[in-house]
Amino acid sequence: MAYEAVKVKKPLTLILLPIISVLTFFLVWELIVEFDVVPKTMLAAPTQVGDRFIDKLSDPNPDGGTMAAHAWVSAQEAFLGYLLSLGIGLPLGLFMGWFSVVRGVARPLFELVRPIPPIAWIPLTIFWFGIGLWGKVFIIFLGGVVPCVINSFVGVRMTNPTLIQMSRTCGASDWQIFTHLCVPSALPMVFGALQIALACCWTNLVGAELLAADQGLGYMITMGRRLALPELVVLGMVSVGLAGALIGMVIETVERRLLSGIRR
């Protein structure tokens, strides 16, 4: 075919720079701890964190769970909460964007609930669900649902009005315009929501686990504080960060595949 995609080679510096910056960061961190710029009781060096990580792979002490056990509990909570917020938040936002009845009913309630930080729900959640899995899923859901609703709502509202007119002259019904036009138009915003919601979910996961848990990465951080083991705290933080970045990368890849036509 005459129309072939052009392959652009990435310059070497662009590949090397991110690696260098990350390495420098860890090196400076290590040196700060090594030369006691910050006392060892307050911050752990990356090597200590690494040692602790290798320990924790097999040893449930001192906090009562191996790395895998904590990660598995957290992942379960986060994914259930995340999926729940997508499953409810995205359709709600999309419908609110196009159907005025849904907008009229849901918008005021949403605006009322939105400013309450999810962490403020923790006491009520403990009354309702105890400190088990579903209480945390609920907190995580509350954190993730807000960006889902807002982004998909705005995405639908930004649908090009000329395209709506064009569809109307074709005789499209409201529902057809919604499915054929508004939803695909909103997709870039929806994918933005996937990223933002994930960040919110992950943040609230740690928040929820700090207060009410007996396992999970957030719980590991709390235990690190109680046992005065900074490397355990940092290990928990780093695991949360890495996992979040990893999922973000997966979402970005999916997004790029799906939206090849919309990106310029």
């Binding site: 000329t162 054929h180 036009l181 695909p184 036509g261």
Partner: peptide, 9 residues
């Protein structure tokens, strides 16, 4: 329409 109305997706 005067402006292009292709659906980009």
């Amino acid at each position: 329409f005067q402006e292009p109305t292709c659906l980009p997706w």
